[in-house]
Nucleic acid binder design. Structure first.
Length: 283
DNA sequence: CCCTTACCCTGATAGC
DNA sequence: TGCTATCAGGGTAAGG
């Protein structure tokens, strides 16, 4: 499940390989992957004879600024969300086409290939007359980036104070802070020694400060590792990251806690599997 | 407004 | 061996 570190790793790869090359054509193998415009034909028409200037990430969304080839004219935006199982690979076009391939963007003899087993992933083409968040509406509702000064202790405390929901569910809410998913939510709570069932409003200022710092730290660590090893996450070169082997609790049910050797427990919160150490995260 | 639940989907795995 | 049930969860929409 690509979260902020995985999406950031993909963004860096795309920035390295895909810029300033003409998009010569597209092939949409699964039309419902294209969230906008309405048809693959319009998507193709929008992208043809453009080139990517740069890639941006906001939360778990990726979007690229496009310009027309030949002229410096703005040509809109390309947006991508990987959701659960999406992969963006930079491959030569003769590479065998995997059966879960949903969209191909041809850039000369290379291509950006969107592969997505469970088909929740989406792509958008947005005309230059609009801002990306007008069309990728979820992006407009995101809370601050975790690394942004706006994600301050005071901001977080004010938000948490108002809620009696369990803290695990709350920090997964992308309108609170953008980019945490199930893996790093569990990891951040472990590093903070906070039980995932704790009502958000019950946390002390000290715990909130620690939670904020832990979230930032675990995301930074994972970015350094090139993202996780879990799920079918791959970077643009088709390899996965190293974070999974370092995980404190995620996907470690019944395995010994790396701090106290107590078996890691798994419960269900907000419909999501939640891993924690009952000893280290007692309160 | 706040919160919970269902849904989209495919493949891996568990249990009989 | 093969069948069925369950689980994985990001984001969004519907419902209480």
């Amino acid at each position: 499940m690509p979260e902020l570190p995985e999406v950031e790793t993909v963004r860096r790869g795309l920035d390295r390989y895909t810029l300033d090359r003409e998009i010569t054509g597209t092939e949409v193998l699964l039309p419902r992957t294209i969230a906008s415009p309405d048809t693959p034909e319009e998507f193709d028409f929008g992208l043809q004879h453009t080139k990517i200037q740069n890639w941006h990430r906001r939360g778990k969304y990726l979007y690229a600024q496009l310009v027309s080839t030949g002229t410096p004219q703005a040509a809109g935006w390309l947006g991508v969300h990987l959701r659960m199982t999406g992969q963006l690979l930079w491959v030569e076009s003769h590479t065998e086409v995997h059966k879960h391939t949903r969209v191909r963007l041809f850039l000369g003899k290379w291509e950006i290939r969107f592969i997505d087993q469970r088909t929740f992933g989406q792509m958008w083409w947005i005309p230059a007359s609009k801002q990306p968040e007008q069309v990728m509406t979820g992006m407009g509702k995101l809370g601050p980036e975790p690394f942004d000064p706006a994600f301050s202790v005071d901001y977080l405390a004010a938000k948490l104070q108002k809620s009696q929901r369990n803290i695990k569910t709350v920090i997964l809410d992308q309108t609170l802070v953008a980019g945490l998913g199930n893996i790093y939510a569990d990891e951040a709570l472990f590093l903070s020694k906070i039980h995932p069932s704790t009502p958000a409003g019950n946390l002390t200022k000290f715990q909130i400060k620690l939670l904020r710092e832990s979230a930032i730290k675990v995301l930074e660590t994972s970015i350094e590792q090139g993202g996780t090893t879990f799920s079918n996450y791959l970077n643009v070169q088709g390899t996965n990251g190293n974070y999974g082997g370092m995980a404190w609790v995620y996907n470690r049910t019944n395995q010994p806690c790396r701090i106290c050797t107590t078996p890691i427990e798994k419960i269900r919160l907000g419909g999501r599997g939640t891993h924690y150490c009952p000893q280290c995260q007692a309160s």
